[in-house]
C-alpha cells in the first residue's frame, strides 16, 4: 500500500493529520499496537519538524506485510549539523513554536529510538528528506 500526503507549511493546527491517517490505517491492518505507536510517533515527529523547521513538504508512506517506510520531504533550510541535531535537547525552535509545545530537542532522538532505521538526507538551502523504517516482524 502506497500513500501520499501534503504537509502544509506553518500550520500547527493541521500538523499531524498525515500521521493520524497512517496510524488509523495501521490499526485497521491489525499491526501490533506497540509497533503502530512507534511508527506513528516517529512519523508525527518528522511531520512536525517539516512544518516547524522545513516550510512544509510531503509524506510518502509504503506499507507492506513486514514493514512500513515513511519518507518526509521538505524544501526548508536543511540541517547544518546532523550530529548536533541528533543530540537530546538541541533545538533551534522559535518562541512561537515553543509556545505550541515543541522545541524540547527530543524529536529526532525519539525517531531514532522508536524506529529500526533512520536516514536523514539534507542539503543546505534545498531541504531535508527523512526516511524512517519500522519492521513488523522483528521481536521487540
Amino acid at each position: 500500500m502506497k500513500l501520499h500526503y501534503e504537509i502544509p507549511a506553518n500550520d500547527l493546527t493541521y500538523a499531524g493529520e498525515a500521521s493520524s491517517s497512517v496510524k488509523k490505517k495501521l490499526v485497521q491492518l491489525g499491526i501490533d499496537p506497540a509497533l503502530v505507536k512507534k511508527a506513528a510517533v516517529s512519523m508525527y515527529e518528522a511531520e512536525i519538524n517539516a512544518v516547524i523547521h522545513g516550510n512544509g513538504g510531503f509524506a510518502d508512506v509504503e506499507v507492506s506485510s513486514d514493514r512500513i517506510i515513511v519518507t518526509i520531504t521538505d524544501k526548508g533550510p536543511g540541517i547544518p549539523n546532523i550530529e548536533l541535531a541528533m543530540q537530546e535537547g538541541w533545538s533551534t525552535a522559535s518562541d512561537e513554536v515553543r509556545e505550541m509545545g515543541f522545541g524540547a530537542g527530543m524529536g529526532l532522538p525519539n525517531i531514532k529510538r522508536y524506529t529500526d532505521k533512520l536516514d536523514i538526507d539534507t542539503q543546505i538551502g534545498e531541504g531535508t528528506k527523512v526516511t524512517i523504517t519500522v519492521e513488523f516482524n522483528k521481536r521487540l
Binding site: 493546527t13 493520524s20 505507536k37 510517533v41 515527529e45 505550541m100 509545545g101 524540547a104
Partner: peptide
C-alpha cells in the same frame, strides 16, 4: 510534547498547561 513522546508509557493521564491541538495529536499518537 516531545518529552511526552520520549518517556510516556501506556495508558497514562496527561496533565498539561499547554492548550493546543498538538496536545490532542500527541495524546492520539
Amino acid at each position: 510534547m516531545s518529552d511526552v513522546m520520549a518517556y510516556v508509557k501506556e495508558n497514562v493521564l496527561l496533565l498539561t498547561g499547554l492548550v493546543s491541538p498538538q496536545v490532542v495529536r500527541t495524546a492520539e499518537m
